[in-house]
Design a protein around this nucleic acid. Structure first.
Lengths: 215, 215
DNA sequence: TAGATTGTTAATCGATTAACAATC
DNA sequence: TAGATTGTTAATCGATTAACAATC
């Protein structure tokens, strides 16, 4: 079974499965089942089995899945059997918070270089990173084979920075600016905007006339 | 047209529409159309019109939508014609980054109280917030009518903190811990986990054999 | 064996899109 | 008026679920 064309929604769920498997593994739980995972994630067990079936057969009838094995299989499928370097653009408050975030390294990513257009920031100080001017992005990306960038600049600058990143050959962008970015189809973009999630939830907090939250 | 039961996916998109409308408004663009919004957001214009139709009629044939009007209508629909106080649990590195995030206040939210179980943190220092012990959460929530909480504690503590928040009457949780939370159905949960998004994108960066990214 | 759980197919359900009459 | 765009319906498309034979 080759890549029969996996729906993007399925791909999007794999990291959630992976996260739970890591947790189970760290808790010493060596075997799990689609039902157990489903309960922990709040989805249906059929969905988990169906999702996994796009990539192969990882379980054993009557038993379930070996936690460590499925975890490692998912890592391989997602491309996490290596570590990915990223560049960070923006070394302001948000960018510095991103630099300090410990979760990247543990789960397959790390920040390799940091850029900011503020001349006052160029130096060694920030969280152990040397802040470099944006002009150096193209060479840095090329020389270090970097494919992922994090955008942590003010909204006003986000699209311009994105255009430069795309020109430099970046293929995936994690955007912390609260703004939709326009990119060519070959470039992946994902958005981190906590306020969008708050606004979504607040809808269900308003009025008793309001429809009830989704299952 | 009352609340015919709006699909959650539609509700989830409203904040994105709102974000773009705010941008247009700030750029002095007074009129827009479903086509213009669609192009900016990378969705179809039919979807935007359909989504809006769940809530009423906001446009004018032949012309489009008045930016400021549609923005304000969406705010009303989402429940953003007021400002929502939140409590933050966790005053470590992540919690402090959340405290410093300027985007909440501008878009309808603010952190009213901060809690941390670390005795060393109790005090005034952090970003202008007085850090209080978690025992005070229930009274604080009750007395101040707080319905939203942000969880920014280590993964190991996240579920326990969540259970306490639920008991205290919290109805919506924004979770920064990289971990699925289990809550009663009446409670909203949304997750912020940048690594999940990176892992999702990386799938499309691996191998030429790989299916191409979604449109 | 009896009990459990997978992998998979077919049925259901829901979301997106296409298309167009209404109308500004 | 001619041109444009909405709001809405019906058709399409795709994702989720139910169910069960296979099998550990």
């Amino acid at each position: 079974m080759p890549d029969t064309q996996v729906p993007d929604m399925v791909v999007a769920r794999l990291p959630l499965y992976l996260r739970t498997l890591r947790y189970l593994e760290s808790a010493g739980i060596e075997v799990t089942s689609s039902q157990d995972l489903a309960a922990r994630l709040g989805v249906s067990s059929a969905q988990i089995r169906k999702d996994l079936s796009y990539f192969g057969r990882f379980g054993k009838q009557g038993t379930g899945y070996e936690t460590a094995n499925l975890r490692s299989q998912l890592e391989k499928i997602l491309g996490l059997d290596r570590r990915w370097p990223m560049i960070l653009v923006g070394a302001g408050a948000l960018g510095q918070a991103v630099m300090h975030y410990a979760g990247f390294y543990e789960r397959g990513f790390y920040i390799a270089h940091v850029f900011d257009s503020d001349l006052a920031k160029l130096g060694h100080d920030l969280a152990g990173f040397v802040v470099r001017p944006p002009e150096e992005i193209p060479a840095c990306v090329r020389e270090n084979d970097i494919r992922i960038a994090i955008v942590a600049v003010p909204s006003e600058a986000a699209q311009a920075v994105t255009d430069e990143l795309v020109d430099a050959g970046i293929e995936a962008i994690l955007n912390y600016a609260p703004m939709s970015l326009t990119v060519p189809r070959r470039v992946q973009v994902q958005q981190i905007d906590p306020v969008v999630h708050l606004q979504h939830m607040v809808y269900y907090l308003t009025g008793a006339t309001r429809s009830s939250p989704p299952a």
